[in-house]
Nucleic acid binder design. Structure first.
Length: 212
DNA sequence: TGCCAGGCCGGGT
DNA sequence: ACCCGGCATGGC
């Protein structure tokens, strides 16, 4: 299994090169993006983040003091804007209450302790928590998402309906903890999913994983 | 035009 | 412990 997972990584990396994720200028912006991109096209998230920046609202304090309706209006392009406004608020409340609004201070917490705390925030599920841990806080945590399940199940690594924890345990049991590799691996999978590994394309023609 | 996008929650079984 | 409906915009 270790061989197969490293092989897949090497093939993707050779085919597409480094992805330099996460798209975002600061750890806080990465965390905001992680919430906004839930079941949502990244392009729409970019508009929402641009709105926040233009309004000078891309900070823990600004979001903390903003009304839910006003926040929802700014993030409207990201979809589910009412729920996401509340979720952003919950995350920001958590960040302010525990770490004075500082991602840097939150990063000092051991990730095995921090992960369940993040999961306790309403609106932060496993993928969002792990995206924040890996991409905003640079913790060696492997992120699983819909693409990962789709790609890996298609190549016989694991059944698609296995739960998140099983996929994550598979990767983290097989691969040494390595922040930059975990970062690239997940980004490459998403890139692959966007490009061609989709339900309408069962053959994956020309896919770098052909035969794996 | 309909389907899909880097999920998550709450209520029901 | 699972299953499902709801949440919503924009691109193709």
């Amino acid at each position: 299994m270790r061989r197969q997972l490293t092989n897949i990584y090497k093939r993707l990396y050779r085919a597409y090169g480094p992805q330099h994720w996460w798209p975002g200028d600061t750890p806080f912006e990465v965390a905001v993006g992680a919430v906004l991109t839930q079941n949502t096209n990244w392009g729409n998230v970019e508009r929402a983040i641009a709105n926040l920046k233009r309004a000078g609202a891309l900070s823990a304090h600004a979001i903390h003091v903003m009304g839910n309706a006003e926040l929802a209006e700014l993030i409207r392009p990201a979809g589910y804007f009412n729920v996401k406004a509340e979720r952003l608020k919950c995350f920001v409340d958590f960040l302010i209450a525990g770490y004075g609004g500082s991602m840097k201070r939150m990063a000092r917490v051991d990730h095995e302790k921090l992960r369940p705390m993040l999961l306790g925030v309403k609106g932060v599920g496993q993928e969002t928590a792990d995206s924040i841990l890996l991409y905003a806080l640079e913790k060696p945590v492997f992120v699983i998402d819909a693409y990962t399940k789709r790609v890996m199940s298609r190549h016989g690594v694991m059944e698609h309906d296995e739960p998140y924890e099983n996929f994550q345990a598979l990767f983290m049991g097989a691969l040494k903890p390595d922040v930059s590799m975990y970062n690239e691996y997940h980004a490459l999978i998403v890139n692959l999913g966007k490009l061609r590994c989709r339900p309408k394309n069962p053959g994956c023609e020309g896919c770098p994983l052909e035969g794996v």
